[in-house]
């Protein structure tokens, strides 16, 4: 369990962390998600002791580590750009933490071989980092961090420097590894898909503050505010409200408008079909209102076939659920 309380950190007059408090339960894989400059990396590096907090405390497993050096925190850290020890072989890289701890040679060799097998680098013992691909280097870095049996594993944009395919593979692999090893893991990412895919819990950060913490489904379904909603998944603006593009219904005919008392905003918006894009499984319809507002609607191919839309025709759009004023209660209940 990691507990950060009242963390503050400024660089000049830029507040990287502005009174951040966060609990990370033991054994979970938590993602710190946010745009660049949101403070997510600073928070992770503060947990590691690589940054000194201006105020606040960091407690890991009941020990107050706020003023403890990174060497003595019992952490494993993985850097975005691997931080491979270039002059050492893969084996020596992974063995580094153990040899610092003056473990027996035989014990080190056994542990290193085990770890290299787990991360799929068996047989690469005598290679140098320069002879590995990016993905392999990062798996080596992971083995190196795990070798010292850290209480928590901290990953700073670990897949950020890799190309899309390798990235997707590696995060699946990380998830499986976590299910096997069960070490409390914190992953920093700016990629919402990565966070939704791999994490048990997500903390969304923005401008040095935590916007919302929760499991991926509740964050996606019940975002606490517009920032979280627009950062996790795509959004369309309908009548000035944010709606998920797949939560908009299109109809040909406008039924008699029933405006709820106290609401002057009609629930339906007149819009013209500007473009229809077939993206494999789904269909995206780009629309424009008379007022010049643009938004996109996602639907399945069968829905699109039923509607049989034509470019240039006029339709009526309404939010099926989500943050539409009339439906906000219903949406939250889903």
């Amino acid at each position: 369990m990691i507990t950060v309380t009242g963390a503050r950190k400024s660089y000049g007059d830029f507040a990287a962390l502005d009174d951040v408090s966060l609990d990370i339960p033991a054994g979970t894989l938590t993602a710190l998600l946010g745009p660049s400059g949101s403070g997510k990396s600073t928070l992770l590096r503060s947990i590691a002791g690589l940054e000194r907090l201006d105020a606040g405390t960091v407690v890991i497993g009941g020990r107050d580590l706020t003023h403890v050096a990174p060497q003595k925190r019992g952490i494993g850290f993985v850097f975005q750009h691997y931080a491979a020890f270039k002059h050492m072989t893969v084996r020596d890289n992974v063995a580094f933490g153990l040899s610092i701890r003056k473990r027996q040679k035989a014990e080190i060799a056994r542990k290193v071989d085990d770890l290299l097998e787990i991360v799929g680098l068996d047989g690469f013992q005598h290679r140098y980092p320069a002879q590995l691909s990016g993905g392999q280097r990062q798996r080596m870095a992971l083995a190196r961090a795990l070798a010292v049996d850290p209480e928590v594993l901290l990953l700073d944009e670990p897949f950020g420097a890799l190309d899309a395919k390798v990235r997707a593979d590696l995060r699946q692999w990380l998830r499986r590894l976590h299910d096997e090893v069960h070490v409390t893991t914190v992953l920093v990412t700016h990629d919402q898909e990565e966070a939704l895919d791999v994490a048990d819990r997500i903390a969304v950060l923005n401008k040095g503050r935590i916007e919302q913490v929760g499991d991926p489904v509740s964050l996606y379904e019940r975002p606490a505010n517009d920032f979280v909603m627009s950062f996790l998944g795509s959004v369309a603006t309908l009548n000035g409200v944010l709606v998920r593009p797949h939560d908009i219904e299109l109809e040909r005919e406008a039924p008699v408008e029933l405006v709820a008392p106290g609401h002057s905003v009609p629930a339906r918006v007149r819009a013209r079909v500007e473009r229809i894009v077939r993206l494999g499984f789904e269909v995206r319809v780009d629309l424009g209102t008379d007022a010049g507002e643009r938004f996109a609607v996602q639907m399945t191919r069968s829905q699109a076939a039923d509607l049989d839309l034509r470019v240039g025709e006029t339709v009526f759009a309404r939010a099926a659920r989500g943050q539409d004023p009339e439906l906000v209660g219903a949406g939250a209940a889903i």
């Binding site: 590691a48 690589l50 050096a69 990174p70 060497q71 003595k72 925190r73 952490i75 494993g76 850290f77 850097f79 750009h81 691997y82 931080a83 491979a84 020890f85 270039k86 580094f96 933490g97 610092i100 701890r101 870095a141 190196r144 961090a145 010292v148």
Partner: peptide, 16 residues
């Protein structure tokens, strides 16, 4: 060129 990543990695692995 080498930056501070390797040194920080060594620190997190327990090296003085």
């Amino acid at each position: 060129e080498i930056g501070t990543d390797q040194e920080q990695a060594a620190a997190t692995l327990g090296a003085s």
